[in-house]
Design a protein around this nucleic acid. Structure first.
Lengths: 170, 170
DNA sequence: CCAGATAAGTCAGTGTTGTTGACATATCTC
DNA sequence: GAGATATGTCAACAACACTGACTTATCTGG
């Protein structure tokens, strides 16, 4: 696969592979979403609300990096059709805490399933040029690379967010 | 021995990290593109035409997975504004071979620069949990993971495409 | 307690990028 | 020369992002 050790060259290849990987990665759930009349924007909301129940609007906006108006359009769809519900915040009653309904969790599970399948396969595969590293090492590598791709200033927020899950279902 | 629970969890994290990584990965060039009145679609065309000079319309459509009409809109912008040029195919005169003009190469280089910076940094960083693997191993890991994320049936096409570069500039 | 900040919702308009469907033209292949 | 193929184009439409302006409810500090 790799021909030369020029850093820019390796990065070029990674840039291109990231494009192809992401293209196929979002392609899977797209087919399911189409059956429901939803799009990728709906998927992203479902994913984060499902994974981090009680997320506020502001937090979701910060994660997705879209405007309030853009979020509201898809969020409204999901709420009106019973996939997501809002509860008034307890400590701050201005906040709207977001939760998936059972229907929403079920749809999200379907979407997650196809993506997990692809990712799990990518981890499980031999990966030819990869020497004697084990499965665990491959997971750590992939996570390390992707995390390092995130804007350094944003990494603490991502870590903090993902750490929430540790405390969840004990 | 259920091979279900734990891997799904790791995959879940990878799915989320891929979202964040891609979000920031495309965010860099977006800022530059905005100065030219271009969008991501223009970037993708520039990238592939720059990297694989002489690409045909059909090949580009297959890479980008969009319709001819979608491609044409952005391609027309790039041609009209002198970033890309078309030459009639030599063996098959129906084909239009695409090439970047010097201006196009220059813009693409600017776009590539910011993405290379991010990727190179991601490779260069310590990556804490990653044990004693070297830089070379991290590159191989990342490439292996991303390639394995691509739809298996499409991998040969991707390999074939990327192999073109090997023969290019010596 | 009230003034100002903050969280969220909404209306209206716009732009990019994707889609379908229909059709035109040039060129190749048999 | 007939039919397939590569490309280009017109028109309509949808998803999803944006800006800007404004409202409502609620919190917080002086």
């Amino acid at each position: 696969m790799r021909i030369e050790a020029a850093p820019a060259r390796d990065s070029d290849d990674l840039i291109e592979l990231l494009f192809f990987a992401y293209r196929d990665f979002v392609g899977d759930p797209d087919r399911i979403l189409a059956e429901y009349g939803f799009g990728r924007a709906h998927h992203r909301v479902l994913h984060f609300v499902d994974r981090y129940p009680g997320l506020t609007i502001a937090e979701l906006l910060d994660i997705l990096r879209i405007t309030k108006q853009s979020l509201n359009r898809v969020l409204k769809d999901l709420i009106d059709q019973g996939y997501v519900e809002q509860r008034t915040g307890t400590s701050d009653r201005r906040q709207r805490l977001l939760f998936c309904t059972p229907t929403g969790r079920s749809l999200t599970a379907d979407l997650t399933r196809v993506q997990v399948r692809r990712v799990a396969r990518a981890i499980e595969e031999p990966a030819e040029a990869e020497g004697r590293n084990g499965r665990e090492a491959r997971i750590a590598s992939a996570q390390g690379f992707l995390l390092a791709m995130i804007e350094p200033g944003d990494r603490p927020a991502v870590r903090r967010l993902m750490a929430r899950r540790a405390g969840m279902r004990a």
